Computed example of a mutant assay.
Amino acid sequence: MIYLFVFIIGIIFGSFLNVCIYRIPRGLSIITPPSSCPICKTRIKWYDNIPILSYIFLKGKCRNCKSNIPIKHPIVELFGGLIALCVFLKFGFALQSVFWAIFGYCLLTLSFIDLELFIIPDVINVLLLIFGFLFAIYNGAIIESLIGGVFGFVLFYALAVIFSKLLKQEALGFGDVKLLGTVGVWTSWVGVLYTVFVASLTGSIAGILLVFLFGKNFKAKIPFGPFLALSAFSYIFFGKELMHFFYGI
């Protein structure tokens, strides 16, 4: 029952993240007005705004105009529940669980924004930076956090410049650079190395699979932010152990 309660709280936060994903990159308030259909502008009733279940009951369509509700809505809500559950299973009822849940929710939000619009809003990186330093103060690791932040930013900025010159086009967005800096604040320089390695590996695998599925002419742009986000979040659970096992750090 406790796990179910945590999961339900998580999908409720996931529902709010859907609002953030839509409104933040468009410069809209995440508080007002209440949620409404983006097509017909009809305000969504509370019983049509129940995470995951409402999408199922409405068969993925607006009750009023019958326009399709993006499938990403229940997916984000589901991920919101899984993030809360995973953090709880790892840390239990503790203040650090709140911090790591915030970390996960920020990463989830920026991932879906990046997937849709190929941008990582500065406001999310700023939130990650603020809460990251607060978490470092709570853990008494402010120096380690600062080193990790600088290391992540400088490393990725250097990679962005080098690959952009080699490829003669922008290889990495500056939002990715800032994101890796904030990841360093949360996970230290070791977490940065882990995140870069795992994100590069998973990104390459995803690219190969897409080419395999759609052929050699596949030219679609693939945002790197979601791979960084997933890799950074996975570091919480087994990153330290893997880095110590393989590299002794």
Rank of each mutant, 00 (worst) to 15 (best):
E77C: 02
S36I: 04
L201A: 11
F7D: 03
I142V: 11
A101I: 07
A136W: 03
K219N: 05
L209T: 09
L128D: 11
I124K: 02
N217H: 13
I2L: 09
Y194L: 00
K178G: 08
I31E: 07
I12T: 05
I31R: 14
T109D: 07
I119Q: 10
L213K: 15
G225T: 02
E144K: 04
F163I: 12
F218H: 11
N217R: 11
V196Y: 14
P226L: 13
I120P: 03
I142S: 02
F79P: 00
A160D: 15
G215Q: 10
F218E: 13
L95V: 14
G215W: 13
H73E: 08
I249G: 01
F135G: 02
T42H: 10
L209Q: 07
I147H: 06
F118Q: 05
Q169G: 04
N139Y: 06
V19C: 09
M1Q: 07
G203I: 15
I2S: 01
S54R: 06
S204Y: 11
S234D: 05
G149D: 10
H244S: 10
F131P: 03
S35D: 13
S97D: 04
T182D: 12
S200T: 15
T187M: 14
L127W: 09
I8T: 14
T182L: 05
V150A: 12
T202K: 03
W100I: 03
I143P: 00
P121T: 03
L95D: 15
P34Q: 00
F238K: 04
G149H: 07
V185Y: 11
I205H: 05
A101E: 04
A232T: 12
F118R: 10
C65A: 01
L213S: 04
L228G: 11
G191C: 10
V211K: 15
C40R: 02
C86K: 03
I130A: 13
A141Y: 10
G60F: 07
A171H: 12
L58M: 10
L159G: 02
T187V: 08
S36P: 01
I12R: 01
P51M: 05
G80M: 00
F99I: 03
Y22L: 07
T182Q: 11
L78W: 08
L213F: 11
K219I: 08
